[in-house]
């Protein structure tokens, strides 16, 4: 049992309802702490479900999920909620932000729910707001924009805000679910470069899920969900 592993799945099985066909059946998956992994999967292949299991919002029918050395099955519901916000940063395809909250508040959300993330954001003796500004600036957002409600921003800007939110407080794992699919091709590469740069800067492993195979070249490892998941075999 190595703490160096960011993610370890063993004999994972999941179905939405009892009696429904098995949705995921993954004998084994391991991701090391320093990796940047690209998981490829077509639409409807169970990508989001897998992420739900990694985040601890869904519970597996069998097998176990270990994140950063912690067996999620041993945590209570609220324990998993706390673990998730303490250790994992999420970026989604779209509707990432709370539309009526100002940009800065959106970025600071994990610090509101997690003392650990708050403490990490304040690590260098500055305020968490300063850290949020630093991240946003690094991702190319600054000035007046930060006080605007999130819904005033363009889709590309919103995705960068979401990235800043995932990164704040240095979570030990970043999970991204199709974060680029709402962007056009040029912007996709720009965004990915920024994201990878920041992940590297704070040494957070990145688990990137997408149906878009062209992006795979940015990553250190590429996996196919279809190959991992026995349930999807015809």
């Amino acid at each position: 049992m190595s703490a160096a592993l960011a993610v370890r799945l063993t004999d994972l099985r999941f179905r939405w309802q009892a009696g429904a066909p098995c949705c995921l059946d993954i004998p084994s998956l391991a991701i090391a702490a320093g990796e940047r992994v690209f998981i490829y999967g077509a639409s409807g292949s169970g990508k989001s479900t897998l992420l739900g299991l990694l985040a601890g919002v869904h519970r597996p029918e069998a097998g176990y999920v270990e994140i950063l050395g912690q067996d999620l099955g041993q945590l209570s519901g609220s324990g998993r909620d706390r673990f998730r916000v303490d250790h994992i940063g999420f970026i989604f395809q779209q509707f990432n932000l709370i539309p009526y909250l100002p940009v800065l508040d959106n970025v600071l959300l994990p610090c509101r729910f997690s003392r650990r993330r708050l403490a990490e954001a304040r690590r260098d003796g500055k305020s968490e707001q300063a850290e949020a500004r630093r991240l946003l600036e690094a991702l190319g957002l600054e000035g007046q924009l930060l006080a605007q409600p999130a819904h005033r921003l363009s889709v590309g800007q919103q995705q960068r805000v979401a990235a800043a939110r995932a990164l704040i407080g240095r979570p030990e794992l970043i999970i991204a679910d199709e974060p680029t699919s709402a962007l056009d091709a040029d912007r996709q590469d720009d965004f990915l470069d920024l994201l990878l740069e920041e992940c590297a800067a704070q040494a957070s492993p990145l688990l990137f899920v997408s149906h878009d195979h062209r992006l795979a070249s940015h990553f250190t490892r590429e996996l196919s969900l279809a190959a991992l998941n026995r349930a999807s075999l015809p």
Binding site: D81, R82, R84, D86, F90, F92, F113, S114, R165
Partner: peptide, 16 residues
């Protein structure tokens, strides 16, 4: 619904 899901992803429990 989306808004609440986002809150869940940043650590809000069902209790929240």
């Amino acid at each position: 619904r989306r808004e609440l899901a986002v809150l869940r992803s940043v650590g809000a429990g069902p209790r929240h």
